[in-house]
């Protein structure tokens, strides 16, 4: 059971105090968008084994949505940050790079579009594996 620190009230909340909200940094596509863009927005999710950005709400707490960068395999938490972020902030990126030297961001801060899309190749996501035993 995870603990995540709410970036608003700085409470280290356990998972039962939080509500999950799926993948972070999706860009909304509304009326006028192409079927492909809308499909990617609505259904395209990375579901990576490794570094991931997620939405969480401090439900049994201050009620704020926030974002968490963590490793879905090792459960390492690289940091949490406000939901009002188009992209993960610098210090989060730095923390991930320090822990996962081979990792690189796969977003383009200049494109204005962070929706993953079904066809996007995932970025290199070097995560120590947990399932081999020797």
């Amino acid at each position: 059971m995870l603990t995540l620190t709410c970036p608003y009230c700085h409470v280290a909340a356990e998972e039962t105090e939080l509500a999950p909200g799926g993948e972070a940094h999706l860009t909304r596509h509304g009326p006028g968008s192409t079927d492909e863009a809308f499909e990617a927005y609505l259904f395209g999710r990375r579901n990576p084994k490794g570094v991931h950005f997620e939405r969480w709400r401090h439900l049994y707490g201050c009620g704020r949505w926030f974002l968490a960068a963590r490793d879905t395999m090792t459960l390492q938490v690289f940091g949490t940050y406000p939901a009002q972020s188009k992209y993960p902030p610098r210090h989060i990126v730095d923390a991930i790079r320090a822990a996962r030297p081979g990792w690189a961001p796969d977003w383009d801060e200049t494109s204005g579009d962070s929706a993953p899309g079904v066809g996007n190749d995932p970025a290199p996501n070097p995560t120590p594996t947990r399932d081999s035993f020797v």
Partner: peptide, 13 residues
């Protein structure tokens, strides 16, 4: 209420 807060906080902040 959660739906409203989600859109307010995360999309139209």
């Amino acid at each position: 209420h959660a739906h409203m807060e989600d859109w307010l906080q995360c999309e139209w902040w």
